[in-house]
């Protein structure tokens, strides 16, 4: 080891470290391509130091910027959405379930509930009594109250269904 190191530390030009590779062992890493330029080796070392330093600093910063799970998680549970008296057959309403809106519709096939976030660009849909359809005010996307399927307009997918439960005359939406 002590025999191999001094030549690397000497002042000089682009001498290769091939002559001291035996002493440095794997440090050169040049394989069999005819020797590693000392200047390039130092540059590689400098680049490695800079990249690893940046990685060390940037990792906690990126981790910090990603919102925590508790901030993004929805709230689970049962939410009272209305009563059969306030929501007779053929009517619908948008209610808040935690921080997210849901649309509840009393159809001839029973009470249905869907996410009220339009699958097109995220506007909040509304119940249109005249059309008897769920309608998005942004681009006139229309959804079937019975299945949540797209009837017309640009939405690419049906409204995600939610679980609606009727107990007595109370309508609950169950999530989570």
């Amino acid at each position: 080891m002590s025999e191999g190191l001094p030549p690397v530390l000497e002042e000089g030009g682009d001498r290769t470290v091939a002559g001291v590779r035996d002493g440095l062992g794997a440090a050169s890493g040049a394989g069999g391509t005819g020797g590693l330029d000392r200047r390039r080796f130092i540059r590689w070392l400098l680049g490695f130091s800079i990249v690893s330093s940046l990685a060390m600093i940037v990792t906690p910063i990126i981790g910090f910027l990603i919102p925590s799970r508790t901030a993004t998680a929805g709230v689970g549970g049962r939410v009272l959405a209305g009563t059969l008296e306030s929501l007779p057959v053929g009517s619908g309403a948008v209610v808040a379930v935690g921080a997210k809106p849901a649309v509840v519709v009393n159809t001839s096939g029973g009470v249905k509930a869907y996410s009220a976030i339009c699958t097109h660009l995220g506007c909040i849909v509304a119940w249109d009594a005249a059309l008897t359809m769920i309608v998005c005010p942004c681009h006139d996307g229309r959804f079937s109250p019975a299945t949540g399927a797209v009837v017309s307009g640009p939405p690419p997918a049906p409204l995600p269904p939610l679980t609606a439960v009727v107990e007595g005359s109370d309508i609950y939406i169950v999530t989570g």
Partner: peptide, 13 residues
Amino acid sequence: LSITSDVSFGWLI
């Protein structure tokens, strides 16, 4: 409090 206990690396920053 949320920075310190909820956010990743919040306590460190």
